[in-house]
Nucleic acid binder design. Structure first.
Lengths: 345, 345
DNA sequence: TTGTACGCGTTATCAG
DNA sequence: CTGATAACGCGTACAA
């Protein structure tokens, strides 16, 4: 073999080498090449090695279009998200892509911030014959009907959002467990009272969490007040405003604040700081989503971390199980304890 | 026509209707159907209308696998990014996906945080025969050789990162213009001295910007000190630490701080706040990237906004031009002026 | 076990 | 401008 020309010939043939070339070089039929490379021929004899060597030498890779046409498997999964500018979506993206790719599959991405756009993206991806579909519904988007419509054709997993029918699969964070862990943690720290800055009022999930908050507060014999616990958006500004109102009164104040999002928690911490209150000595603060920013606040923020790895692996497992085995899976998150709650009463 | 059964028959045939069915229903040949639906036949006579009606009735959509197999156009473009957890990447994603999709194209996403992974993703996508490739190199990744290797086969656009050869296309933010705009803005505000918190020292771009900073400072007759201007990472913590050191000394202090990232600026603002210095009354602060967080800081942060829309449209234009017309395009950003610099001296 | 031959759904080619 | 037909590259039933 002429070592110095290996690279040159490889790069020269990289574009136009098909299974036929490999078969010719390995001195076998294309059927054998197909079987060896797709793993349908387990033996590892001389033939198999010759085929693999030829494929490597020609820098051969299967033509997915031809493969998909013949076998109706595209080695492609579709992912629909509302936006990349959201810590949950972004972390899920970073977690899911590498896992997809090891399977020599690829990720077809659709972004849609509202119901109409998401439905459009779903239809686009179904038209592409993706092998499976993972959907993170946008806030307030009801995709159940749409998803159910394709559920018989295609394995579909909804991640988070409103609970859907049992004809489609679903993976979600166990928010009740989250609340239990958070309140339990605060109770362990010895605090006596706690406030809650919830998510959007319109959301069913927010309401449910709100209820769970009160259940857990009672269970741990903590105190809370109606005017401490408000619905609102998930912004820094909202956390700031709420905390300013809450802590500038000379009346009774909570010893801890639980937030439905890290951004809110962040605003709360800034407000506390400008009021001269210390975190965690005077007030403990807990966030949600464990966004990258939680690690870099002053002090670092204790936050609920959604089980991204598990969400991804369960979602992919459900996709592999096919469209006929739908299931609803709820996964408990983890509390990442940092400085913002590191203070024993 | 039986209106009530339209939906039922459409959904029933949605899965298994090919060009042959459409041709039969429209009473033309499959070739004509192909031409009408792909727009290669401009006339809008009775035949065209019959074809479209038949396609709509059967809920037909082209099989991209078959189309790709025959025509070597996959209607797919590949995008490689280092991570979704970065404001620049996330905003570019949100900007690019809708523009791709209107062209009935799709986005194949690859994520790789280092050089090796990114190369792997690029090869994966090339293996998928994407029609074009957009690459955002990871920090410190040198992909020029890899990209150049495929540049003859495939239109490739590099976005940002180290300058590449003229055999591949490139779209980047004009950082010099950015610095000019920023320093010009501060000079207009009447400040006399300014500090700069640069990006990573290893980066060529950082060094270049560092030089540009000094050029602009001189041009506007402002003052700066060597110990004010440091390289460092793009984190909140870094901004906080640097600002604490800088502003806790009773010596001469800058009236403005320019940061290479919003996160740094954020840390600076927190530090100033805890030192009792007001923004913008005592110190003006400018960030970079106009991440969503810039809108929600207290006060809202003046920040350099990369021209995402233009980056996307230029990148797609270069992809459309094919692999034989590479170009390097540099786009001036925009300064989004907010409260953090809203103070005349 | 291996090879031959067919067909997947589409677009390109060419003759009418 | 239209229609018939070949060809794209691969997987697999069937024959050897």
């Amino acid at each position: 073999m002429a070592r110095t020309t290996d690279n040159a010939s490889a790069s020269a043939t990289s574009a136009n080498s098909s299974i036929t070339n490999v078969a010719a070089l390995a001195n076998v039929s294309i059927a054998t090449v197909s079987r060896v490379l797709s793993g349908k021929r387990t033996k590892d004899d001389d033939i198999a090695r010759r085929v693999r060597a030829a494929a490597a030498h020609l820098n051969y890779s299967v033509n997915y279009a031809a493969s998909a046409l013949r076998s109706t498997v595209t080695n492609t999964i579709g992912l629909v998200i509302p936006t990349a500018n959201d810590p949950f979506c972004a972390q899920l993206l970073d977690e899911i892509e590498p896992v997809i790719d090891v399977d020599s599959q690829q990720l077809l991405l659709g972004i849609g911030g509202d119901q109409a756009t998401q439905i459009q993206r779903i239809e686009s991806l179904v038209g592409r014959h993706v092998d499976g579909l993972i959907v993170l519904p946008a806030w307030g988007a009801y995709l159940s009907a749409e998803l159910e419509h394709y559920a018989s054709t295609l394995p579909i997993v909804q991640v988070g959002g409103r609970r859907c029918s049992f004809r489609t699969s679903m993976v979600s964070v166990d928010e009740n467990a989250a609340m239990e862990i958070v309140i339990g943690h605060l109770a362990e720290r010895g605090i006596a009272s706690v406030a809650y800055m919830a998510g959007k009022e319109i959301s069913f999930e927010s309401a449910e969490l709100f209820t769970m908050f009160h259940t857990q507060v009672r269970a741990h014999h903590l105190n809370t007040e109606a005017e401490w616990n408000k619905f609102g958006d998930r912004s820094v500004q909202r956390g700031f405003d709420c905390a300013m109102r809450l802590f500038s009164e000379p009346l009774v104040q909570p010893e801890a604040v639980v937030c439905a999002d890290d951004a809110i928690a962040f605003g709360v911490m800034v407000a506390l700081h400008s009021l001269g209150l210390r975190v965690p000595e005077d007030v403990l603060v807990v966030g949600y989503n464990d966004s990258p920013i939680a690690r870099t606040t002053m002090p670092p923020l204790t936050s609920v971390r959604p089980p991204f790895k598990q969400i991804v692996s369960e979602a992919l497992r459900l996709l592999n199980d096919g469209p006929d085995n739908p299931a609803h899976i709820s996964l408990a998150p983890q509390l990442i304890v940092r400085e913002s709650t590191n203070c024993q009463r």
